[in-house]
């Protein structure tokens, strides 16, 4: 299989890696640990939905969901190849990884478009 689009996938992978490296720790810490454990109070619903309605927020959320998903797809694909030595299943792995990333990104786009 030739791979003319590999450089493109790698660019998406890199963007996803950078975005998630910069922004995921703080999001994850706040929403996954600090708030549930009661270290800080959760933001009010109205504040959040107001924030969410802003187009820049929607774009921001799309970026930090779609790119990291491709980042995963690309990285995980090679981990499967090398870690399990199943390179012969290339087609299946490619469909699974990038397919899942694509579905996730589409879901994000749909949800963000339809915010009331």
């Amino acid at each position: 299989m030739g791979r003319p689009i590999t450089p493109f996938l790698w660019l998406l992978f890199s963007v996803g890696g950078t975005v998630s490296a910069l922004l995921f720790p703080v999001h994850l810490f706040l929403t996954g640990l600090a708030i549930p454990l009661g270290w800080i109070d959760p933001p009010r619903y109205e504040a959040l939905i107001g924030l969410l309605r802003h187009p820049i927020t929607r774009l921001y959320l799309f970026v930090i969901i779609a790119f990291p998903l491709v980042h995963w797809a690309h990285r995980f694909r090679y981990t499967l190849y090398d870690g399990l030595q199943i390179k012969h299943l290339t087609a299946l792995i490619v469909v699974f990884c990038y397919g899942a990333a694509l579905v996730g990104s589409a879901a994000a786009a749909y949800l963000l478009w339809n915010i009331p």
């Binding site: 998630s20 999001h27 619903y45 930090i64 995963w72 915010i115």
Partner: peptide, 30 residues
């Protein structure tokens, strides 16, 4: 290091879930 990507992806899904809940309304958010 390579497997960190799995958690990155999981959290992206969690973010999706957040958005969905917010869209459904205050009860879903609670």
């Amino acid at each position: 290091r390579e497997l960190t990507s799995v958690f990155v992806a999981l959290f992206a899904v969690v973010l999706l879930w957040h958005i969905w809940a917010l869209e459904l309304g205050p009860e879903a958010y609670a």
